[in-house]
Design a protein around this nucleic acid. Sequence first.
DNA 1: CAGAATCCCGGACGATACTG
DNA 2: CAGTATCGTCCGGGATTCTG
Lengths: 135, 135
Amino acid sequence: MLELEPLCFSSECPSRALFDQIADKWSMMVIAVLNEGPQRFNAIRRRLQGVTQKALTQCLRRLERNGLVAREVISLSPVAVQYHLTPLGHTLREPLQELHKWTLVKLPEVTAAREAFDSADGGKKRDRSLIQLRL
Amino acid sequence: MLELEPLCFSSECPSRALFDQIADKWSMMVIAVLNEGPQRFNAIRRRLQGVTQKALTQCLRRLERNGLVAREVISLSPVAVQYHLTPLGHTLREPLQELHKWTLVKLPEVTAAREAFDSADGGKKRDRSLIQLRL
DNA sequence: CAGAATCCCGGACGATACTG
DNA sequence: CAGTATCGTCCGGGATTCTG
C-alpha cells in the first residue's frame, strides 16, 4: 500500500530515461501486434500503417536490446526473420494497453477540452505564440 | 472481456497521436507531482530536477490544453500561478503510475538484457552502426 | 514570480539507394 | 526479404535575455 517510495524525481534516476524508451507510440503498437503471435518484419510493417522502415527497425532494435522482444533468424533463402515477445515483454503489455485504453475512452473528453482551450483565448494575446498546437 | 476491439492501427486513428502526447516523461512526472496537491510553477520546476523552463511550460500548456491540468492565476504582486489536476487528469494518474512502477521493478532485468545485447555482438558487424545505444 | 521571445545546434526523421 | 548506409531537412530543446 506504499505510495511508490519517494518516487524518484532526481535527474539521475535511471527509470526516468527508461520510461522514455518504452512509452512511445511505436513500441506500444509493436508490442500489441506481437502479442497476437510471432511476426515477421514486413508483416509488422504492414499492420502499422504509416511507420517507416527505419523507424520500425530502430524500434525493434531498442525493444530487443531492452529484452522485451526476441529476434530469430530463420535461414531460408531469402532470409526470414521472426520477432516475438519475451516473458519480460509480456509483462509490459498490460500497463501499455491500459494506457492505450485510456486514450480510446477519454478521447472525447480530451477533444472537448481542446476545443474549449483553443477557442477560449483565441482572441487574446496568446494567438499562436509558444503554444504550438499541432496535432 | 473484449480484447480492445480491432485495436486500431490505422494511421488515421486519433488515439495514436494522443498517446504520444500524454505518455512522455515530463507529463508523467508533472502529474505525479500535482497528485500531491496544487503546486506553483517554480515549485514543480524545483521538484523535477533537470527540466528546463521551456520544457516545463510546454508540458504544462499541453496538459492544460488536453484538459488534464488546470491553471489558475492568483493576483498578487508578484503574480502567482497554481496548477492542479482536473478530474480527467486524475484518471490518467493510475495508468501512468503503473507504467512508472514497471520501469522501477523491471529495471534490473532490462539492464541485464542490455549488457547481454551490447556485449553479445560487440565484435560483430553491428559495432556502432544504426543501433544508437544512447541512454 | 511566471513566463515569452530569440538564437542556435544536434539529433530525429523521411526518402532514396544499395546489399546479402 | 530484411535490413544498412547516406543525405538533406526540419524542429524540439537548451541557453540566454527580456517583461508584466
